[in-house]
Amino acid sequence: MSGGLLLAQGEPIIPDFGEGSDCVVENRFFCPDWVRDNWAGVIQPALLQHVKLVVIAVAIGFVLSFAAALVAHRYRLVEAPFTAFSAVVYTIPSLALFQLLVPVTGLTVTTVEIALVGYTLLILFRNTLEGLRSVPPDVLEAARGMGYTRGQTLWRVELPLAVPAMFAGLRVAVVSTIALATVAALVIPYGLGYPIFLALREAFKTEIVVAGGLAVLMALVADALLVAAQRALTPWASARRLA
């Protein structure tokens, strides 16, 4: 190949690629026709993928941090290393984390999930542990004095009382994961980040509005569901206090 420069063989033929609607071409704020054309092919799959990314990440993150918090509650020595680990993970920019993971786990959903799970650990671990530790000493003494075993104290007293703190953690984790999951699009065309980043680059307003709006809506709905779930699980926390 002589230096890579290829002699042009005449100008290429540029075919008619078809035109967008006036609304699209003028890039108006919101083009319903574009949404109609792209809902099934672009937006809906992205939304479902996004929900999946978040649910899986938070579920795995919750199980891991919950287990770690139980261990740290029992053995204090475990707290510092796990906190340090999750804090370090938390501070790594997603792009940098992907740099580390791509050679190992490839350009895959796994890579994204590992990063997202990593970001949930710190908040979920801290909150669960704080929750377990927030149980008043007199309550623990009463439990012991009445003959609760250690396990019974944990499952019947400490964990139920840690639920509000755990939910506080979950709410932050879910909302921030919904936001963070857009970075999945740095690795694969997956989730709402894909149309959002794409539309931002093209300054294509309709797509920004729809995809961005769906992400915000998803965060609001998820948060409302969590609040409702917490209310249902902890009627005592919202019981009217005696004046």
Binding site: L95, Q99, V102, P103, G106, L107, L186, I188
Partner: peptide, 17 residues
Amino acid sequence: ENIGSTELIDTALKSRQ
């Protein structure tokens, strides 16, 4: 497609992703 940065796509290239 949609690989997020020059560094990331280069990492993907080097690791034969």
